[in-house]
């Protein structure tokens, strides 16, 4: 694991150039500030805005209703559109605010992103999140919250007695008893802060056990 900054030469093998790199005059350079993944020759970002990809599941917030679309903020430079035809039943455009109001939070999947970054969403369940709480962390820390093969998220779900849903865009929905939610948020923020330090899963396990004994 090595920290790289933009402009660092990574390799001469142009064919292997992955994400977070660029190619110039037969060499591969880092294009972003992050950690080098030597195996796949890509740079894992440490900061930056969430960029939507087709197939991502995200937590969005309805910010406007226009024509036959809900405009959804997905914690990215680009707003996403949720079309009325995504609703399982035919509804009148005038009744859109009865299904989803401005301010509602939804769990959505990115259906399509085009070259001009027009983002289209689709919903699995057409209802907003009404209970629980949503927190926002940097999307670059999401892989750490999930852990290798889901090790971290499984630990959290098992130990915290909460249901947790992690969106790729850095928003996390937590539902359960208020005290459990408090502890969950505390834990998730610690993961965000210390995402780059080794042995984190063990420390998180300790933190949860200690808090539970006290509680």
């Amino acid at each position: 694991m090595k920290l790289v900054i933009p402009g660092d030469i990574l390799s001469d093998d142009v064919k292997r150039a992955g994400e977070g790199t660029y190619v110039a005059s037969g060499k591969v350079y880092a294009s972003i500030y992050g950690i080098l993944d030597q195996k796949e020759l890509r740079v894992i970002p440490l900061s930056g805005k969430y960029m939507p990809y087709t197939g991502d599941t995200v937590i969005g917030k309805v910010v406007d209703i226009i024509f036959s679309n809900w405009i959804v903020d997905i914690n990215s430079p680009y707003e996403a559109l949720l079309h009325i035809s995504e609703h399982p039943e035919r509804i009148d455009p005038c009744d859109m605010d009865r299904c989803l109001e401005i301010g509602d939070l939804i769990i959505a999947r990115v259906k399509d992103v085009d070259a001009t970054m027009r983002v289209e969403l689709t919903l699995e369940k057409f209802r907003p999140l009404r209970s629980g709480r949503v927190i926002e962390i940097s999307h670059t820390r999401i892989p750490r919250v999930i852990g290798r093969g889901g090790s971290m998220i499984n630990l959290l779900k098992k130990e915290l007695d909460c249901s947790i849903f992690v969106g790729q865009n850095g928003r996390i929905w937590i539902n359960g008893k208020e005290d459990d939610i408090d502890l969950a948020i505390q834990t998730l923020l610690k993961i965000e802060r210390e995402a780059h330090t080794p042995g984190l899963t063990d420390r998180i396990r300790e933190l949860i056990e200690r808090s539970k004994k006290r509680g």
Binding site: P6, G20, I32, Y33, G48, T140
Partner: peptide, 11 residues
């Protein structure tokens, strides 16, 4: 800019 995670050719 680098700290913000913006893709650059170099500093």
């Amino acid at each position: 800019l680098a700290d913000a995670g913006i893709p650059m050719r170099g500093l």
